[in-house]
Design a protein around this nucleic acid. Structure first.
Lengths: 288, 288
DNA sequence: CAGTGGTCTAGACCACACC
DNA sequence: GTGTGGTCTAGACCACTGG
C-alpha cells in the first residue's frame, strides 16, 4: 500500500530515510532547485508558501523549512518576511583591481568609483570615515608595522542607489598620511595614491590577495547581505620602488554583486624585484 | 523573579524574543562564536555536545541545533557525525593565475601543479578525463562558439593527499585540439598551452574572471566541501595575437583552501588590443 | 552497545507587512 | 485583521562510529 510519509511515520518499523533513499528535506529541496534551474521559477519569482509546500509534500512544516533552509544557504532563494520566499539572481558589477594604482588615467579626475558607476545610470554614494587606529593584524603585518603601532585608516562604504556595494578600508603608515588630505574624510579627487606619490611614496608594484569566505555577522549587517551570500576579501598591498609597503586596502565584496576581472599578458614572468620573484617559485597553481 | 527561558515559556504573556532582545539561538551562537574568536576554542577543538549545550543554556535541543547551524553556515564549525562539532580553520594554499600562460618557465618541465605542490611535502595526484562535448554556456560564449557547437574539454580534479584541492575544466575549440596530445587523458609535461602554440595558436593575452558563490550540490560532493564553504570560480580565457579565444579554463576553488594571488605593476594601462582597452573604460572599480 | 548528531513530527506563540 | 515566515518546545526514531 502506498501512503504518505506523514502517515507512514505511525506504523513503519524500518527506516524510510536510510541508506539509498535521501532524506525528505533533500528531495524537496532538489525538486525546488530543479524548478529554479530549469526556469520554471525565474529570478524574482515567489515560491509557494510554507503552508502550501506542507500540503504539497505532506510533511511537517519544520521539514519544509529545513528544505528551504538548504536553498537559502546555497544562495538560491531568499526569505523576505513576511512576504514569502523569492528566487535570487541578478546582475554582477565588474570589479577591476588593476584600474587603480599610480596616477589616474587621463580624463578621470574624479574618484573612479564614482565616475564609472555613474555611467551605469545608478546613483553612487559613499560614506568616508578617517581614523588613527592600531590596525588589525592583516593590515599591520602587510604594512610591516610592529604590534601596537598606529596607522591611518580611511574606511569607506560604497553604495549604489542606497544599496551597499562594497567596503574599502585603506591603511597608511602614520608618518606618510599625517598632514595630508588622506586625513580628511572627504573624497580625494586625484586619489590617495597620487597624494602618497606627491609625498615621496610613489607605488610601483602591488600584490593582490583574494580570500573567499562567509561574512562575519558584522559584515553581513554592514553590507546588508542575505544568508547564503559569501564575500571576497580583496587585499591590495602597494609598494614603493624601495620595496616599502605604503598602503594596504582591504576590500570586502559581496559575492552576489561582483565579478573580479583581470586582464593580463600571456607572459609568466613575475613582476617585482628578485627577492619577491624567488618567493613565487615555491608555491602556486596554474590553470592548464 | 529570574527564571530560565524554558520555564518562562509556560507563563509569560509578553514576548521575550521581540524588539531589542535578540533571539535565543543567536545569543547562543554569539557566545560560542566569541569563544572561537578569542581562542578559548581553537582550530580542531571539539565543541560541547548538543546535550551539554541544552543543559548549559536550558533550552530545547532544536534551539541548540539552530544556533549551531548558524555557525556551520558561517564556516566556523563543522559537524563530524557522530563524533561531534569541531572548530574549523587551517592553511590556505596559494593559487596564482599568472603562473601559467605561454611557455613554461625554465626548469619547470612537469605540470607546475604537480611540481610546486610536491615541494610542500604533500602527495599530489590528479584525475584527468577528456571528452568532446557541447560546452556549457559560460564556456561556449567565451570561446565564441555557436550554440550546439562541440568543443574538447579536459576535466581534472586535483588532489593533495587524497583531499580534493580544486577542479579545472579546460575547453578548446575542436579543430585546434583535434589530433593533438590535448585529446589524451594524461598529464601533458610541457602544458596544453605549449601544444596550442605549436599548432599555431600561441596565446598572448588572457582575461581572468573570478566569481564568488556557494557551491552547487554537485560541486560540494566532488570537492568534498563542508557546509558553509563558498567557492571561487576562476575562468580564464586565453587569446591569440589575432584576438581569437582558443582556451577557456573553468577552475572551481574551495574558499577555505585557497588564496588567490596576483602580483602586478603599479601602472594602470590596460593590457590587450585597443578595442578591448576601450571596453575597460566603461565599468570597473578601484581599490583606493 | 552507548553516545553522537541527523531527521521528522506536532503544536505553540511571535513580529511584521499589507490589506 | 490576515497571513506570512521566525522562533521555540517536546519528543520520537534513525545511522554511524568507536569503545
Amino acid at each position: 500500500m502506498l501512503c504518505s510519509p506523514k502517515q507512514a511515520m505511525e506504523w513503519r518499523t524500518v527506516s524510510v530515510y536510510g541508506s539509498g533513499t535521501r532524506s525528505v528535506k533533500i528531495r524537496i529541496a532538489d525538486a525546488i532547485r530543479a524548478q529554479i534551474l530549469d526556469g520554471t521559477l525565474a529570478t524574482g519569482d515567489r515560491l509557494p508558501t510554507e503552508a502550501q509546500l506542507v500540503d504539497e509534500y505532506d510533511v511537517a512544516r519544520n521539514t519544509v523549512r529545513d528544505a528551504l533552509a538548504l536553498l537559502v544557504n546555497e544562495g538560491l532563494i531568499v526569505s523576505q518576511r513576511p512576504r514569502g520566499y523569492f528566487v535570487r539572481g541578478g546582475q554582477r558589477m565588474q570589479y577591476r583591481p588593476q584600474s587603480d594604482l599610480g596616477s589616474r588615467r587621463s580624463g578621470a579626475s574624479r574618484d573612479s568609483y564614482l565616475t564609472e558607476q555613474a555611467m551605469a545610470g545608478r546613483q553612487p554614494t559613499q560614506k568616508i570615515e578617517v581614523a588613527i587606529v592600531v590596525p588589525p593584524p592583516e593590515a599591520a603585518q602587510r604594512l610591516a608595522l610592529d604590534e601596537g603601532q598606529p596607522a591611518v585608516v580611511r574606511r569607506r562604504v560604497r553604495l549604489l542607489d542606497g544599496e551597499a556595494y562594497h567596503t574599502n578600508d585603506s591603511y597608511f603608515p602614520l608618518e606618510l598620511a599625517q598632514a595630508t588630505e588622506i586625513m580628511s574624510p572627504v573624497d580625494i579627487d586625484r586619489g590617495a595614491n597620487q597624494v602618497l606619490a606627491e609625498n615621496g611614496a610613489q607605488q610601483v608594484r602591488a600584490r593582490d590577495e583574494i580570500f573567499v569566505r562567509m561574512p562575519t555577522p558584522g559584515e553581513a549587517q554592514r553590507l546588508d547581505l542575505a544568508p547564503g551570500t559569501p564575500v571576497a576579501v580583496h587585499i591590495t598591498t602597494g609598494y614603493t620602488a624601495d620595496n616599502v609597503p605604503v598602503r594596504v586596502a582591504v576590500n570586502v565584496l559581496p559575492g552576489d554583486r561582483h565579478v573580479i576581472i583581470y586582464d593580463r599578458l600571456a607572459t609568466n614572468e613575475p613582476y617585482g624585484p628578485p627577492e619577491l620573484a624567488d618567493d613565487m617559485d615555491d608555491a602556486g597553481a596554474e590553470d592548464e
